Simulated assay, not measured.
Amino acid sequence: MRLSAYGRTGRRASRSAGRAIQTSSHVPPSQKETIEYLRAAVLGSDPGITENVKWKAPSFLRGGEDRVTFQLRAKKGVQLIFHRGAKVKDDRADFRFSDESGLLGWISSDRATVIFQDLDDVKANEEAFVTLVRSWVNT
Rank of each mutant, 00 (worst) to 15 (best):
V53N: 00
S24Y: 07
I107F: 09
A86L: 15
E127D: 15
I107E: 09
D121S: 07
S98Q: 15
D94M: 00
G48A: 12
E33L: 11
D91G: 05
R92K: 11
R62C: 06
A40G: 04
D121N: 12
R73Q: 14
L119T: 09
D90W: 02
T113K: 10
T69Y: 01
S30V: 14
K89T: 11
V42F: 01
P28W: 04
A128F: 01
R84H: 05
D118E: 02
A74G: 06
A57Q: 09
V122A: 10
I107Q: 15
A128V: 05
G44M: 03
F95G: 00
V42T: 01
V88N: 10
S98R: 13
L80A: 00
S135C: 10
V68G: 01
D46F: 02
R111T: 11
Q31V: 03
F60I: 07
F60W: 09
D110W: 00
Q79T: 11
A40H: 06
Q71M: 13
Q31Y: 13
I81G: 01
A40K: 01
V88T: 14
T34A: 07
D121Q: 05
E65R: 03
S108M: 10
A40P: 02
T69F: 02
V88Q: 10
D120I: 11
L119N: 10
F129G: 01
F60N: 04
G85A: 14
E33D: 13
E33R: 10
W136E: 02
E36T: 07
F60Q: 06
V137G: 08
K56A: 14
L132N: 11
D66Y: 04
A20H: 06
V137C: 08
P47T: 03
K32H: 00
N52G: 12
A74Q: 08
D121M: 10
P29G: 05
I21S: 12
G64T: 13
R96Q: 09
D66F: 07
H83F: 06
R62F: 09
S30P: 03
A40T: 04
E126A: 14
R19S: 12
S24R: 08
